[in-house]
Amino acid sequence: MKLSRRHFIAAAGAAAALPGIASAQTFPSRPIRFVVPFPPGGSLDVSARAVADRMTVLLGQTVVVENRPGAGGNVGVDLVAKSAPDGHTIVMGALSTHAVNPHLYAKMPFEPLRDTVAITQVGDVPNILVVGPSVKADTVADLVRLIKANPKGFNYGSGGNGSGGHLAGALFADRIGVPIEHIPYQGGAPQLNALLSGETQFTFDNLANAFPQIEAGKLRPLAVTTPRRSAQVPNVPTMGEAGIAGFDISTWFGIFAPAGTPADIVQKLATASIAALKDPATVERLAKLAVVPVGNTPAEFTAFVRAEHAKYREIVRLSGARVD
């Protein structure tokens, strides 16, 4: 247990600063830093701000959102993992930082399951398979037939190596048994542009990003990648219904605190954030971003993160994506 010394010192420091026992009675004693490990403006960032606003009211201390982008979210999570475990520094972890990056990056500055504790899952954004205007496919079966007839004429774009779109595409190619060329872009916007201009033929985008184009009839949705249909696009079948089994990829995110945070403080943060996610105004703000609010307990979220971590080991290997 090499790391425990660091946490011990941090915990001891926190305990010394607050005479008696640092506990839920005195927490929070000062503003809470809510680190978002991505640039401002994305749906994760906007959700964090919505939740932070409500938590501020519930906890009686300001929850300040602070963007710390870098290295696929690793920079921001690492910062929090190494902060004092007193509940005053929390982070919005995500599929990428807690389930994908550990298998993707040759060198991780932290170990997500060991160095952070899960508080609650904030939201879930389904991914959706969409085809560009030039592809004459109305169903997944159509698309598979077209690809099998002419595998060279198909590329799928994604927001980057190891992004949710890349992994879903690799899984799709594996399931239909045809290798398809992956074209990575710098984030969600340019890859959507490429799909619209016909540079790529299909993509697994998150619903928030693709929905306006679907609504405007510019992109055709074929299937959602979750086990259940999405309320936002109720007519679009799931991948399972479309004949491709075992497909469950969605972009999720939730709140984490440094490992070693006392259980009663974790509980207090969980209570506040779960209540924030039940607030109608927050729910409405998230719905506009195609985010499905979750708000589960710390135990449930921990089990979920462990399962995702295990699941993505195989998917990342399939995709061949690596950062080293």
Binding site: P40, G41, G42, F211, P212, Q213, E215, A216, K288
Partner: peptide
Amino acid sequence: MIGAMSIHGIVPGPQ
């Protein structure tokens, strides 16, 4: 700017 639109509940897009 798009982030700001989303914060204000406007979904940016062709519509």
